[in-house]
């Protein structure tokens, strides 16, 4: 059905604000692991949910704008670049995985892992060193853990939003 521009704008605003808030929360409570690039990726919760409920076309701008905003607000040019690379790869991997037999949990895991792979690939290119691959096993594990957590939260959210009486047609 055709949506009004105001509704679309409100929807994007809502989702971006939500993911930005989650980014902020994460910025306030960093994981004390001492490895660059390891974070919970709470904002991915919004992206995974949006991907399932709204489709790729609407979830994509949410993902990109969230990364740009959070990067500009909490990071520097380099961390922004890493997040963008990770975020984009993660988004497209999740897009592909959604078409497979994977449940939202699996999709989120694939997203979490590919986010870290994307980050590390760009970091290796920017720093022109292959040495950074030493972080890769750790980041794979971390991406798996955080992706799993996000997926386990996202799955019931998606299920309830789909089944429940929430007025989804505005979406």
């Amino acid at each position: 059905m055709k949506q009004s521009k105001a509704k679309t704008a409100a929807l994007y605003g809502l989702l971006i604000a939500l993911s930005f808030t989650l980014s902020y929360l994460e910025h306030l409570l960093p994981l004390p692991v001492g490895i660059p690039g390891v974070k919970l990726g709470l904002a991915n919760l919004v992206v995974v949910t949006a991907l399932y409920l709204l489709g790729a076309k609407k979830a994509f701008p949410v993902a990109v704008v969230r990364i740009l905003l959070a990067g500009l607000a909490f990071g520097n040019a380099f961390s922004l670049l890493y997040s963008l690379a990770g975020g984009m790869l993660s988004f497209f991997v999740m897009l592909l995985c959604r078409r497979t037999k994977l449940s939202p949990v699996g999709v989120s895991v694939a997203g979490g892992v590919s986010h870290n792979v994307g980050q590390i690939a760009v970091a290796a290119a920017v720093m022109r060193t292959a040495r950074i691959v030493y972080y890769l096993p750790v980041l794979l594990g971390a991406g798996l853990g955080t992706g799993l957590l996000i997926g386990l939260i996202a799955a019931p959210v998606i299920r309830r939003l789909k089944k429940g009486n929430i007025n989804l047609h505005i979406l």
Binding site: P61, A77, V126
Partner: peptide, 22 residues
């Protein structure tokens, strides 16, 4: 248009990062 804008953004950022210590 939005996607084009995002891609442009990406391109600029990539280049800014690349010419640092290459």
């Amino acid at each position: 248009k939005r996607i084009t804008a995002v891609c442009l953004c990406l391109l600029v950022l990539l280049q800014a990062a690349a010419c640092g210590e290459r």
